[in-house]
Amino acid sequence: MLIQVNGAPVYAYTGGKSFDAAKPTVVFIHGVLNDHSVWILQSRYLAHHGWNVLAIDLPGQGKSGGQPPASVEEAADVVLALLGAAGIDQAALVGHSFGSLIALEAAARSPAHVSHLVLVGTAFPMAVSPALLEASVKAPEKAIAMVNTFSHSTLCPPPSALGPGTWLYGGSRALMRRMLASNTETNVFYTGFKACDSYAGGEQAMAAVHCPTLFLVGRHDQMTPPKAAKALAAHARLSKIVEVNAGHALMTEAPDEVLFALRDFLAA
């Protein structure tokens, strides 16, 4: 479905179920050069088990219009505006990588509107090397290859993710190319990485969050190693850490572990 947010359409995948604002709602927020599809197993399961699901494409990429957010703070405001536009009083926010910082900042800015917070593959600070930032502009194919090398700990997912025979590296590279090409005016690769690298308010934001927080980390994550989430976890009021056997691409490398952790946390 498309939701008008700040004068532009934001696409939200509903998991195959009609949107019903009366149900408890979970909003999924993807990372740099990803889209709603990275949450395919988790979003569909929750949509068919009592949850209202909105797995969004961030503005200015994928199926969403508008301008891509230039900062974590700007993106957080979009998420909160989305809740208002959809008539949702309170929602669980689930974010991966860049999306985890967006979810964190949104929960800090408007605690009353967030019931649960899930930070997947998160870190603070989420520093991006100058070489990778430069490559995202001057050699995006090289940068995409680098990101995928460091994001995956295995070649193929279990059947519950994307089906037998799926090649995680190839599929992820194809998605990233598609997202980069979806905006011909702004380099959403560089913009997203720069937003991650520039975000300085993580610890203050975590201290301002009132709801329970789940940290979902990958044991073999080279992009945001498990230890990189400790600075945030130390400032959380009600936190739980779950480590799964995966790299940075947790949702497709360990889909069932991620789903079960989400299911159990949201049910508590």
Score class of each variant (00 low, 15 high):
residue 24 P to N: 07
residue 118 V to I: 14
residue 23 K to V: 05
residue 196 C to Q: 08
residue 218 G to Y: 07
residue 144 I to C: 00
residue 168 L to A: 05
residue 258 V to D: 02
residue 31 G to R: 01
residue 197 D to G: 12
residue 130 P to N: 05
residue 106 A to P: 01
residue 195 A to P: 04
residue 186 T to Q: 01
residue 103 A to P: 03
residue 95 G to F: 09
residue 107 A to R: 06
residue 163 G to P: 12
residue 82 L to W: 10
residue 177 R to K: 15
residue 249 A to Y: 06
residue 194 K to W: 10
residue 157 P to G: 15
residue 223 M to A: 13
residue 197 D to R: 10
residue 259 L to P: 08
residue 145 A to S: 13
residue 150 F to C: 03
residue 225 P to N: 04
residue 244 V to Y: 11
residue 28 F to S: 06
residue 70 A to C: 06
residue 164 P to R: 14
residue 56 I to M: 05
residue 26 V to N: 03
residue 97 S to Q: 02
residue 102 I to C: 00
residue 108 A to V: 01
residue 3 I to T: 13
residue 230 K to H: 13
residue 72 V to W: 02
residue 214 L to R: 06
residue 115 S to K: 13
residue 173 R to L: 10
residue 113 H to K: 15
residue 20 D to T: 10
residue 39 W to D: 00
residue 121 G to S: 06
residue 83 L to F: 02
residue 11 Y to S: 10
residue 16 G to A: 09
residue 8 A to Y: 12
residue 251 M to L: 15
residue 70 A to V: 10
residue 246 A to N: 05
residue 172 S to D: 11
residue 183 N to G: 05
residue 97 S to D: 08
residue 162 L to A: 13
residue 91 A to N: 07
residue 51 W to P: 03
residue 180 L to A: 03
residue 36 H to W: 12
residue 87 G to A: 09
residue 208 A to W: 08
residue 26 V to R: 01
residue 233 A to R: 13
